[in-house]
Measured scan of single mutants.
Amino acid sequence: MSIQHFRVALIPFFAAFCLPVFAHPETLVKVKDAEDQLGARVGYIELDLNSGKILESFRPEERFPMMSTFKVLLCGAVLSRVDAGQEQLGRRIHYSQNDLVKYSPVTEKHLTDGMTVRELCSAAITMSDNTAANLLLTTIGGPKELTAFLHNMGDHVTRLDRWEPELNEAIPNDERDTTMPAAMATTLRKLLTGELLTLASRQQLIDWMEADKVAGPLLRSALPAGWFIADKSGAGERGSRGIIAALGPDGKPSRIVVIYTTGSQATMDERNRQIAEIGASLIKHW
């Protein structure tokens, strides 16, 4: 068994979910400061990975656009189908120029040979490839089937209604394609530690997140040497930005962190900087 497989195998399969305990108010002060700096709502939650206990939260039950963070949930649904014998990671999917949508850096290079389901999930999570996400959504039956998958695992909040790139529209008070920080954190924890997926599929999902190549300016920029992070970022219209992550010291994950913001006029660089500063405070007061 590899070190990575050993790491995931040791994560307990508890489903406990406790009331908020504000253990590190310094980080919450930074979250509130980020709201002021961005002129926007910021949602934040931090869960203990083992117990599910809420360590910190701010606007945990307010809706925020999911943006590309939904791609982790999508690949979780795909892996669930693989575990059930309904899908194969090695199955090759062919597509055409007409299937390509905005921001598809991986799929646009494989119009001739197509891509396997495994490769599409990797592209969707590590590079946030939008066409890969749409092709994967098609394999499970579309956005409503992803919502149904989430409902079946106990998440009655998170919903996907549209395809890429329309799902990033982020209209105020529009519940389409949204989640809440508390719901997303709990669902991510179930996918990474629960019995919904096999150990091999849980390991595959966290491996894809660990290999994320487009979230460098966010939490990763604040991470000390030797820390572990597996994450997925998202960006949308109307100043929307977000990240979901499993992270921790000593090379293994010990907490789930979810950060969303929407409604800002700030630049992407400024949104990234504020999320990175929240991450720096989190690590400082770990």
Rank of each mutant, 00 (worst) to 15 (best):
I3M: 09
Q4R: 11
R7H: 06
A9E: 05
A9V: 09
L10A: 15
P12A: 12
P12T: 13
P12H: 10
F13C: 11
A15D: 01
A16S: 15
F17L: 09
L19V: 15
L19R: 05
V21G: 08
F22V: 07
F22G: 11
F22C: 14
H24D: 10
H24Q: 14
H24L: 10
P25A: 06
P25S: 12
P25Q: 07
T27R: 02
T27P: 05
A34V: 14
E35A: 08
Q37R: 14
L38A: 07
L38Y: 10
G39S: 11
R41W: 06
V42R: 00
G43S: 06
Y44D: 01
E46G: 05
N50S: 14
S51R: 10
S51A: 09
G52A: 07
L55W: 08
E56R: 10
E56L: 07
S57R: 11
S57Q: 15
R59H: 12
P60S: 11
E61G: 14
E61D: 15
E62R: 05
R63E: 05
R63S: 07
R63H: 10
F64C: 01
P65V: 03
P65G: 02
P65W: 01
P65S: 05
P65H: 04
M66A: 07
M66Q: 05
S68Q: 00
F70C: 08
F70G: 07
V72D: 01
L73W: 02
G76Q: 01
A77C: 11
V78E: 02
V78A: 05
L79V: 05
S80P: 00
S80G: 12
S80N: 14
S80F: 12
R81A: 11
R81D: 05
V82E: 05
V82F: 07
D83S: 05
D83E: 05
A84S: 11
A84C: 08
G85E: 12
G85S: 08
Q86V: 11
Q86T: 15
Q86I: 12
Q86G: 12
Q86P: 04
Q86S: 13
Q86A: 13
E87K: 01
E87A: 07
E87H: 04
E87I: 09
E87G: 04
Q88G: 11
Q88N: 15
Q88S: 15
Q88A: 12
L89P: 06
G90V: 11
R91A: 04
R91W: 04
R91V: 05
R92T: 15
R92A: 08
R92L: 11
R92G: 05
H94N: 09
Y95G: 02
Y95D: 02
S96L: 11
Q97K: 15
Q97L: 13
D99E: 13
D99G: 07
D99Y: 08
D99K: 12
Y103T: 04
Y103A: 06
Y103N: 04
Y103L: 04
Y103C: 06
P105L: 06
V106R: 07
V106D: 08
V106G: 05
L111V: 13
T112A: 14
D113N: 11
M115G: 01
M115K: 02
V117A: 03
R118W: 15
R118K: 09
E119D: 13
C121L: 05
A124I: 02
I125L: 10
I125S: 01
I125C: 06
T126I: 03
T126N: 07
M127I: 09
T131A: 12
T131L: 05
N134K: 03
L135R: 03
L135Q: 07
L136T: 03
L136A: 04
L136I: 11
L137W: 02
T138A: 15
I140N: 03
G142D: 03
P143C: 06
P143L: 02
E145R: 13
E145G: 14
L146A: 05
L146V: 15
T147A: 08
A148G: 08
F149Y: 15
F149N: 06
L150C: 09
L150A: 11
H151L: 09
H151R: 15
N152C: 13
N152D: 14
M153I: 15
M153K: 08
G154S: 09
G154V: 02
D155N: 03
T158D: 00
R159F: 05
L160D: 02
L160P: 03
L160G: 03
L160F: 10
L160H: 05
D161E: 09
R162T: 08
W163S: 10
W163G: 10
W163N: 12
W163T: 12
W163M: 14
P165E: 07
E166Q: 08
E166M: 13
E166P: 06
L167T: 07
E169R: 10
E169G: 14
E169D: 14
E169A: 15
A170S: 11
A170Q: 08
P172I: 15
P172A: 12
N173T: 15
N173H: 14
N173D: 13
D174G: 05
D174E: 09
D174S: 07
D174C: 06
E175I: 11
E175T: 11
R176T: 06
D177R: 00
D177C: 02
D177N: 03
T178L: 01
T178Q: 02
T178N: 02
T179A: 02
T179R: 00
M180S: 15
M180N: 15
M180T: 11
P181T: 04
P181Q: 00
P181C: 09
A183D: 08
A183V: 12
A183S: 14
A183H: 11
M184C: 05
M184R: 00
A185S: 10
T186V: 14
T187R: 01
T187M: 09
L188G: 03
L188Y: 08
R189Q: 14
G194A: 09
G194D: 10
G194C: 07
L197Q: 04
L197Y: 06
T198G: 12
A200P: 15
A200L: 08
R202G: 08
R202L: 04
Q203A: 11
L205V: 06
W208S: 02
W208R: 00
M209I: 00
D212H: 03
K213N: 15
K213D: 02
K213T: 13
V214L: 10
V214S: 06
A215S: 11
A215P: 04
A215H: 04
P217T: 13
L218T: 03
L218N: 03
L218D: 02
L218F: 03
L218I: 04
L219E: 02
L219S: 03
R220V: 02
S221C: 12
S221K: 11
S221F: 10
S221W: 10
S221E: 12
A222I: 13
A222E: 15
A222G: 11
A222P: 13
L223I: 14
L223V: 14
L223H: 02
L223F: 05
P224A: 05
A225H: 15
A225T: 15
A225P: 08
G226S: 13
G226T: 10
W227E: 00
F228R: 08
I229D: 00
I229E: 01
A230E: 00
D231R: 02
G234A: 10
A235E: 02
G236E: 02
G236T: 05
E237K: 13
E237W: 09
E237V: 10
R238C: 12
R238L: 13
G239T: 02
G239R: 01
S240V: 11
S240D: 06
G242C: 07
I243R: 00
I243T: 03
I244D: 01
I244N: 01
I244M: 10
I244A: 07
I244S: 02
A245T: 06
A246Q: 05
A246S: 12
A246G: 06
L247A: 05
G248A: 02
P249A: 07
G251V: 08
G251R: 10
K252L: 15
P253G: 08
S254L: 11
S254R: 12
I256L: 09
V258T: 06
Y260F: 08
S264V: 05
S264D: 08
Q265L: 13
A266D: 11
T267L: 10
M268S: 09
M268Y: 06
R271S: 07
N272K: 06
I275L: 08
I275Y: 04
I278F: 03
L282S: 06
L282P: 00
I283S: 05
H285L: 10
